[in-house]
Design a protein around this nucleic acid. Structure first.
Lengths: 251, 251
DNA sequence: TACGGTCTCCGTACAGTGTGCGGGAGCGGC
DNA sequence: GCCGCTCCCGCACACTGTACGGAGACCGTA
């Protein structure tokens, strides 16, 4: 997988995240391309062929357009990616707890929604590390606002809600990105999870030889229902974190 | 930032992570290049010029070698990256708690060590999403083992230690990768954190207009000592998680 | 009707990428 | 001397992001 580079970027003095502040150029009638369409097709391409398949040329072709036509609507590939990520964030629903007591259930549901969105688009794992939280994207904003509201209804003050948001978010992102990366690698090797387990056990055992705890843990893995195991693992950790948050919230 | 691609990878049927299972080719006398040297130089290049600057040609030049010479010691750029990441993991120390009561302090220290390693090499944030936990690298193995031991001395059984490890790891990775990405973006724009805050406030305020909680949070950010704020933020979340873990551990 | 201006679209070109291939140089053993 | 093995490398190929300049379509105005 080539990870191409170009002459190292110079400091521009331009503010970061300017995609969100610069207004979209106004248009007359219906041109053949639109920013929305481009973003949508990029996501389709990413979903079907993965991160390495996203190139301006391929994207252009899928839109019956030349590669450089895209630059009329999107100033950069980086900018395109920012838009793509924010659009995925737009898929995430944050439930509104009806009462103070429901905040925990709502938080769990929210976490699972984030996880589901990432696993629907596993390629996003490769992008999160370059973008952090895409600080200014409108959907990221909405997400933050809604999650803050969730915690506030749960009895946290704004400051603590902020901590809660960051903690839960970091956990969910960290956990699920790892999961997505694993699934992507698996997909590339063209094997099922069980296949891989079986195939690699001998080698893995050898590598783990000096590490008794890791070895024991690996050995007692039941090889069935690996996906449900991942899900329950996720929920376990999330529960832990919510316990901790509740304790810090106080009465 | 080009994110190049090439003909989509075909399923190989080869097991994943084969770098760690395939033995290094045996050598005679002292060749000019070695795998260790290549990895070390790659890290130096990454540290000084960032992820986009890492190309086989540039790396070869820095080693007074042709680009393709590297392929004698490293089968792939991807493999090189796996090696690089695992070497960074090798910088992380896991303290051994002397008594059951010390596990918490040890866990906090460990988390901060991971954070420090990532912030020393911020480019790693872009790679974590493609590698998850680099499952089989020797240093990742050692880390897992040592952290499991840490939690076991803290009174967790192996199963719970596993949950604890995964939870803490996901949090630390998620939190710090976000932080690193932010710092990298800042570095690229050539501004200090305070500069940026000042410069972008107007635009940011406009974007955040519909989101009162986010706005309030942003407004009460004291613009001084942002780095310490991040650190204490990190510790707060980590504390929360350890609270939760302790509660689930039981007596 | 004619004309300048603006917006879209695209062909071409450039510098840079990962890496397959074949060849050459130095070495150990027969 | 020769074979085979290891290491290094130049070349070539297919592919990348994107700067640039031009072509065509549409607009409001003269």
């Amino acid at each position: 997988m080539p990870r191409a580079a170009q002459p190292t970027k110079q400091p521009t003095g331009e503010p970061i995240g300017s995609v969100w502040t610069r207004p979209q150029r106004p248009r007359r009638e219906q041109p053949a391309l639109s920013r929305d369409q481009i973003v949508a097709e990029a996501i389709a391409l990413l979903d079907s062929d993965g991160i390495e398949a996203l190139s301006m040329r391929k994207l252009g072709t899928r839109l019956n357009a030349g590669a450089t036509s895209l630059y009329t609507h999107v100033s950069n590939k980086d900018e395109l990616i920012e838009l793509v990520v924010d659009r995925i964030y737009g898929e995430i629903e944050v439930p509104r707890p009806a009462s103070r007591e429901e905040w925990r259930a709502a938080a769990v549901e929210c976490g699972n929604n984030v996880r589901a969105a990432i696993l629907r688009h596993p390629w996003i794992a490769s992008l999160l590390g370059e973008m952090g939280m895409a600080y200014l994207g409108p959907n990221m904003m909405r997400l933050s606002e809604d999650m803050l509201e969730l915690f506030e209804t749960g009895g946290f003050d704004l400051e603590r809600s902020d901590v809660a948001l960051k903690t839960v978010w970091a956990y969910v992102i960290g956990m699920t990105a790892t999961e997505a990366a694993w699934l992507t690698a698996l997909g590339r090797s063209g094997q099922s999870e069980e296949d891989w387990m079986e195939r690699v056990t001998a080698a893995a055992m050898q590598v783990m030889e000096p590490y008794p705890r890791v070895r024991r843990l690996y050995a007692q893995h039941t090889p069935t229902r690996v996906d449900e195991a991942r899900r329950s693992n996720f929920d376990l950790g999330l529960d832990c974190i919510l316990d901790g948050l509740e304790a810090q919230r106080g009465a």
